[in-house]
């Protein structure tokens, strides 16, 4: 049995999300965590794209003289594509902020271990 392109993409998206979650939660190195977070984000983007994939669909641009009903039945749904573009931009900005903070903290601690940098900060307020 041949697996459809859509199903294959869905599996790939699911795999990316699970691998990303694993890296973000269990890996100590912040850079590897960030790569994991990026995997989650790209997995979700792939998921959006492949959910509304249309086998043999046409570009969703209504040309002059085109039959509206035929167009509505055959054109690919353009909304998810627009959403993915926005999502990519948001992801890039978030990633930039995380990496900038990581660089700053690496200079401060000389380490990329999340355990060393982040986990020793929860206390009951007696910081001084």
């Amino acid at each position: 049995m041949m697996i459809s392109t859509q199903l294959l993409c869905l599996f790939a998206a699911g795999a990316l999300i699970i691998i990303g979650l694993f890296a973000a939660i269990f890996i100590d190195n912040i850079i590897k965590k960030v790569v994991g977070l990026s995997f989650i984000e790209e997995g979700v983007n792939l998921f959006i794209i492949c959910l509304t994939y249309k086998e043999g669909g046409i570009v969703p641009i209504l040309a002059p003289g085109m039959n509206v009903n035929w167009f509505a039945q055959n054109a690919a749904y353009p909304l998810p594509q627009a959403l993915v573009l926005t999502s990519i931009v948001i992801g890039a900005s978030t990633l930039a902020v995380i990496l900038a903070l990581t660089m700053f903290l690496y200079k401060k601690y000389g380490s990329l271990s999340a355990h060393e940098i982040l986990n020793n900060k929860y206390d009951m307020g007696d910081e001084e």
């Binding site: 979650l21 973000a24 912040i30 965590k33 977070l37 989650i40 984000e41 978030t94 990633l95 902020v97 995380i98 903070l101 990581t102 903290l105 940098i117 982040l118 900060k121």
Partner: peptide
């Protein structure tokens, strides 16, 4: 950073 990492999930 902690907030951003959690936010990215």
């Amino acid at each position: 950073l902690k907030y951003m990492i959690l936010g990215s999930i």
